Simulated scan of single mutants.
Amino acid sequence: MRSLLLFIAAALFSIGVPATPATDFEIPVGDQTHSMLALSQNGPVYVDFWASWCGPCRRSFPFMNQLVQDFGDKGLTVVAINLDVDKQDADRFLTEFPANFAIVYDPDFTLAEAYQVGGMPSSYLIHRGEIIETHVGFRPKDAEQTRETLTRLLP
Results as ranks from 00 to 15, higher is better:
49 F>S: 07
108 D>C: 00
102 A>E: 06
104 V>M: 12
140 P>S: 00
125 L>R: 03
126 I>S: 01
29 V>F: 03
61 F>C: 02
104 V>W: 11
88 Q>K: 02
118 G>E: 12
121 P>E: 13
125 L>C: 04
110 T>C: 06
76 L>G: 11
37 L>C: 08
126 I>K: 00
134 T>S: 15
93 F>P: 00
91 D>K: 04
65 N>E: 09
80 A>Y: 01
87 K>H: 07
131 I>V: 14
38 A>W: 09
70 D>C: 05
110 T>F: 05
128 R>D: 14
36 M>R: 07
114 A>M: 12
52 S>R: 04
139 R>V: 11
43 G>N: 07
38 A>K: 15
45 V>G: 07
59 R>H: 06
28 P>F: 13
60 S>G: 03
107 P>G: 08
141 K>E: 15
113 E>A: 08
133 E>Q: 12
120 M>P: 00
71 F>P: 01
39 L>S: 00
126 I>A: 02
77 T>C: 05
50 W>D: 02
142 D>E: 14
98 P>I: 08
88 Q>E: 09
126 I>F: 07
40 S>V: 03
75 G>C: 10
95 T>W: 00
107 P>T: 08
24 D>E: 10
125 L>F: 07
82 N>M: 00
87 K>S: 10
75 G>R: 05
91 D>E: 05
90 A>H: 04
36 M>E: 07
108 D>H: 13
121 P>F: 13
55 G>H: 09
45 V>P: 08
48 D>T: 01
50 W>T: 06
30 G>A: 14
61 F>I: 11
120 M>A: 13
140 P>T: 10
93 F>Q: 03
33 T>W: 01
98 P>M: 10
85 V>M: 12
41 Q>K: 15
112 A>L: 12
31 D>C: 07
43 G>I: 11
62 P>K: 13
85 V>I: 13
35 S>C: 11
56 P>A: 13
36 M>F: 06
67 L>K: 07
